[in-house]
């Protein structure tokens, strides 16, 4: 892909620009009070889209220049084993019963989305990209690729799902009378992955800890089960 020096230079420049835009977006997010509505990814996309437009670089070129970052996502995803290992102890302590709500939530979220899209006249690949909506982004990217979805779309759906979950959680819990902090956390982490978990930590440490459990277990279970289902039916 990167055949000569000028392309290598472009790659170095765009990787640096991406890092700077990321840091800038993080700063904007913090300044605005770390609200889920102002997720840093929103600013990242907007700023980079403008920069690409003015530089006359198209998205495909940008993606090949920043291939290093995408490649690093693989080893970074492996690092999820560490929080998962920490959570294994809590499953041991609480028994497998702690898994029931996670399994229910993990199955319900993609199924409901699929029902909502069933009659839309759209390509299957777009609909399949909704199946990973509730799992953490790195696992969603690879899983959606595996089941014939569109990774680019899957990322956006995952982040939007997380934002929606984080914004509405408190009102839904009030409406349904869910007062148990454990239940609040498990649901947030299972349905709204890392963005929901971050919101959980803002509600209380306990909600956040249980959200981490939901995030880890649902992420890995969904990433294992979806490819197997597609392997069996294709």
């Amino acid at each position: 892909m990167l055949s000569n020096n000028s392309e290598l230079l472009s790659a170095a420049i765009w990787v640096c620009i991406t890092l700077l835009v990321y840091l800038g977006s993080l700063l904007i997010y913090r300044v605005l009070g770390s609200r889920p509505l102002f997720h840093p990814m929103i600013f990242c996309i907007a700023i980079l889209a403008m920069l690409l437009f003015y530089a006359g670089v198209n998205v495909k070129e940008y993606q090949s220049y920043t291939g290093l970052l995408s490649w690093l996502l693989g080893p970074a995803t492996v690092a999820l084993a560490i929080p998962l290992y920490t959570q294994l102890n809590s499953i041991k302590k609480n028994g497998l019963g702690v898994m029931l709500p996670i399994i229910v939530g993990g199955a319900l979220a993609p199924l409901l989305a699929l029902i909502g899209l069933y009659f839309l006249p759209m390509e299957a690949s777009i609909k399949l990209s909704f199946l990973t909506k509730s799992i953490t982004t790195p696992l969603a990217i690879e899983t959606s690729q595996y089941i014939g979805g569109i990774p680019e779309l899957a990322v956006v759906i995952v982040i939007f799902t997380g934002i929606v979950g984080a914004i509405f959680a408190a009102s839904i819990y009030r409406l349904l009378g869910v007062k148990s902090e454990q239940a609040q956390g498990i649901a947030l982490g299972t349905v709204a992955h890392a963005i929901g978990t971050a919101q959980g930590f803002q509600m209380s440490q306990k909600v956040g800890a249980f959200a981490s459990l939901g995030l880890c277990i649902n992420g890995v279970l969904t990433a294992i089960i979806l490819p197997i289902i597609f392997f069996l039916f294709s």
Binding site: A113, T161, I172, V191
Partner: peptide, 25 residues
């Protein structure tokens, strides 16, 4: 329609999951 699908499916699953977890525990 896509945006609405995400909002509705997320809100419903969040509610049902939390409710089931509370009953279960």
């Amino acid at each position: 329609w896509l945006v609405l699908t995400i909002i509705i499916s997320t809100v419903i699953s969040l509610g049902i999951t939390a409710w089931i977890a509370q009953r279960h525990w």
